[in-house]
Design a binder for these strands. Structure first.
Lengths: 111, 111
DNA sequence: GTTTTATGTCGCAAACATACGACATTACTA
DNA sequence: TAGTAATGTCGTATGTTTGCGACATAAAAC
């Protein structure tokens, strides 16, 4: 009865919320930054760069993969992760479009 | 013991994650869109525009307020909410900076 | 002063997210 | 084919979010 009424909102709002949800944890931001820093796609030894257990990092990677932001390519026992050009650009234009849109009717708030 | 190790990540990553968290629900996106549509700041009768109870909408408004994205001004029994120019722009540049940054080392993923 | 109107806050229940140890899987290596 | 290394998945404990009814508050209307 309670919870999860997301289907009552329009697709664009849900898309934006979904992308933001994927980015809504510092570990995932740190992972993305790390991937962006590397010349080559890097495997799951991201663990050594992130102060979390391997299991947890793996889960965060799955979430980023589900959101389509990263991509993992199997190579032997390793998995090479990388940022997906198309999807990162999709995210960029989705968020930019939204922020540009709401930026039209803002008000000065001294606060 | 478990959970919430966010303090182990750098400030920028936490800031980005925080903003994204505020945007990580379709209701909040819908609320922001609605606010952007209005000529004047609109009070909590946003309820009629959003398929959720007044209580829940009120809570989402609080979250957006906490994130500094909107601002509520009391006027009698009403509260006029509006988008904060400075903060919306702050969010824009924060997210743009990050996305621009990670966009440098992406890879074509046919998928 | 009582009623109405617009809001916010509390407390609860259900759903979801986070973190991790233990186990399973898969491929390379000797 | 046994051993190791890199990963993923499961189960569990705990914290957080979502959604709402019920109550509290406070200004305006009468």
């Amino acid at each position: 009865m309670t919870y999860s009424k997301t289907e009552n909102f329009d697709q664009n709002s849900r898309d934006i919320a979904k992308v933001c949800k994927a980015l809504a944890h510092p570990a995932r931001i740190a992972i993305l930054k790390y991937l962006a820093e590397q010349k080559v796609c890097i495997s799951g030894d991201i663990t050594t760069e992130i102060p979390l257990s391997r299991t947890t990092v793996s889960q965060h990677l799955q979430e980023l993969k589900n959101a389509g932001i990263i991509h993992g390519e199997i190579s032997g026992t390793r998995v090479n992760y990388c940022l997906c050009k198309e999807n990162v650009e999709m995210v960029k234009s989705l968020l930019n479009g939204f922020l540009e849109n709401i930026n039209k009717n803002t008000v000065e708030c001294k606060k």
